[in-house]
Design a protein around this nucleic acid. Structure first.
Length: 562
RNA sequence: UGCCCUGUAGUGUAAUUGGUUAACACGUCUGACUCUGAAUCAGAAGACUCUAGGUUCGAGUCCUAGCAGGGCAACCA
């Protein structure tokens, strides 16, 4: 009702506004989205993207794209490309060229030397296992490394030799010298550099030592002039280290600020890259862009729109508490958008033949149909009507249930965009008793659009002319997991035991002829059944439609009420 | 037995920063409408604001102590 309603700020916007008021960082707002290119983006990333880019937009700031490519063994250009594509598809443009943490390897190295010179970092030759055990446990302090008090000169020399490739992988690391008894495990002399004789997808073989996240991230933010560095909650305990690293190298007042928020969780969905990769590798789905996947490319193929996803991100909000969003909210955001843009078409998924006995044999009439009643600019189309049509088997009941208003013997319904017909009889298989076809008569005065066609009937059903119908392959997708929480598993089973065996059903449906020329990516609403999208693999000889989302169906309620 | 974070209808997010009947969206349930039983519209139910104390004229909001959930011990990010 009230359009003047003011949207409340989320807590990050509050922080940004406070910083702005206080004139911090010359009142600039500069965020960044920093994916590691080791997998495809999913809807959780979409939330993060909308947040970081959204804050920049709202406060006339900038948002960078930065690939956090500090671990060459897991990263690949394939992912870099998909990430760029997905962000743009979502409707966001990053500031300038994309950045890479690897662009800063030289500077990071120099800064590491500064750190060593200050006596705040040392080269440790302790094995990984020993470092781990010396670190202690959260409830007990750790033990200082034997290398901790080496001279600066020694550390400088060793670090250079690390860089020069004199040491094998895993034999040395550079560690910050902070506090081995800190209650925060990340402050117990964290590793800053490790040796990996491994080609990097951008720097090739230039480096054999690579910085760790903690040494690279804040420094990269600093280099790029980031003011608000938004990340998920699991980095909360890293924040003191983030700040510590910056304090070692930063000059002046400018400091990027790390702010954490809760990541998105969806019920019936797994979100971790590890698990999504498993689904792909074990052929439990058909690739990263399988329409059942929560990846952005999967959602795109499924028929989701950027608008729906952005609106969803806005609706779920930002907070610090753990959350599990209901899939129904995502679906609502999607229907909301699709309802405005999807063309209404007739597709009969479970056909039942209707013979209109008083309609001339061999005659065809072209009926006018609105493409979208909510959008005049979508125009009209014609669809053929003839003596035999298919209707949805569900739309006929020989013995109608209570409040069933559709076709039943003696009852009239409107064939949408066509005529009002009355059921006069049913032909059944004499042996099995199953319904073969339904007989009707039509009222010629009730043709859609005609004078005197305004007679009210209790129901309207969709149909398609039997002789003109085209067959389409319809892929009915359902949730990938059968349990609300995929992690809730029986003893001895793993999360994959919760995969929904009915997450994909393929049927052949009878569609109106106009669907034969649909193009990949186009969105349709099949009357009364759901929203569909033309699959990328669809061809003229094999028409493939993905079900994007179902329509609400009150029929189910009515049936259960009887 | 450490440190950090978080507890508001089924779900998520709010609450003019200490102010009165705790709001909005999704979901659920009713009903209206009918050339899609969709959409739309109208309405309803649903919250001892984790608990117990305290401060205050007044607490979802501040304090104390509990409890519950999550995170932290990768040479991952």
């Amino acid at each position: 009702m009230d359009n003047t309603e003011i949207k409340s700020l989320n807590f990050i916007e509050e922080i940004v506004e406070e910083d702005l008021r206080a004139g911090k960082n010359n009142s600039r707002v500069h965020t960044r989205f920093p994916p590691e290119p080791n997998g495809y983006l999913h809807i959780g990333h979409a939330k993060a993207i909308c947040l970081s880019f959204g804050i920049a937009q709202k406060y006339n700031g900038k948002c960078n794209l930065r690939f956090d490519d500090t671990n060459p063994v897991t990263e690949d250009v394939e992912y870099v490309d998909s990430i760029r594509e997905d962000i743009q598809w979502l409707g966001f443009n990053w500031e300038g060229e994309a950045h890479y943490a690897s662009d800063y390897f030289d500077r990071l190295y120099e800064w590491a030397i500064v750190l060593i010179r200050k006596g705040k970092a040392y080269v440790d030759e302790t094995s990984a296992e020993d470092i781990s055990s010396e670190r202690g446990i959260p409830t007990q302090p750790g033990k200082e490394s034997a290398c901790r008090n080496q001279s600066v000169e020694e550390n400088l020399d060793l670090f250079e030799r690390m860089k020069n490739g004199e040491f094998a992988d895993g034999t040395r690391v550079l560690r910050a010298k902070i506090d081995m008894s800190s209650p925060n495990m990340h402050m117990r002399d964290p590793v800053l550099y490790r040796i990996k004789h491994c080609d990097h997808h951008r720097t090739g073989n230039k480096w054999c030592i690579y910085p760790m996240y903690d040494w690279a991230h804040g420094q990269s933010d600093y280099i790029e002039g980031i003011t608000h560095s938004l990340c998920t909650l699991e980095f909360e305990v890293h924040r003191p280290l983030y700040d510590w690293c910056l304090d070692q190298i930063a000059e002046g007042d400018y400091r990027p600020r790390q702010i954490e928020f809760a990541r998105l969780n969806l019920n019936y969905t797994v979100m971790s890259k590890r698990r999504l990769l498993q689904l792909v590798n074990e052929d439990l789905v058909n690739g990263w862009d399988d329409p059942r996947m929560p990846t952005i490319c999967g959602l795109r193929r499924r028929g989701y729109t950027p608008e729906a996803l952005r609106n969803f991100a806005e609706t779920v909000g930002i907070a610090k508490r753990e959350n599990v969003i209901e899939l129904t909210l995502l679906e609502h955001c999607l229907r909301d958008d699709l309802n405005k843009i999807a063309r209404r078409v007739m597709v009969v998924s479970n056909p039942l033949k209707v013979v209109i006995e008083n309609y001339p044999e061999g005659k065809t009439e072209m009926m006018d149909a609105e493409n979208n009643p909510e959008d005049e600019s979508a125009g009209m189309r014609e669809m053929p009507f003839s003596r035999e049509v298919f209707i949805e088997a569900d739309d006929f009941m020989e013995e109608p249930a209570k409040k069933f208003f559709r076709l039943s013997p003696g009852n009239e319904v409107r064939l949408k965009n066509g005529y009002i017909v009355m059921c006069t009889g049913v032909d059944k298989d004499p042996v099995t008793g199953s319904i073969l076809q339904v007989r009707c008569t039509y009222d010629p005065l009730t043709r859609s659009g005609l004078e005197g066609s305004n007679r009210k009937v209790k129901a309207t059903i969709h149909w398609v002319s039997a002789q003109h119908a085209v067959d389409v392959e319809v892929r009915l997708y359902d949730r990938l997991f059968s349990k609300d929480d995929p992690d809730e598993v029986e003893e001895g089973l793993d999360w994959k035991s919760n995969l929904n065996p009915d997450s994909l059903k393929i049927i052949t449906a009878k569609a109106e002829p106009s669907l034969a020329s649909a193009k990949a990516g186009e969105k349709y609403q099949f009357q009364r059944t759901g929203y569909f999208c033309v699959d990328k693999d669809s061809t003229a000889s094999r028409l493939v439609y993905n079900r994007t989302v179902t329509l609400k169906d009150n029929w189910a309620k009515i049936a259960s009420r009887t």
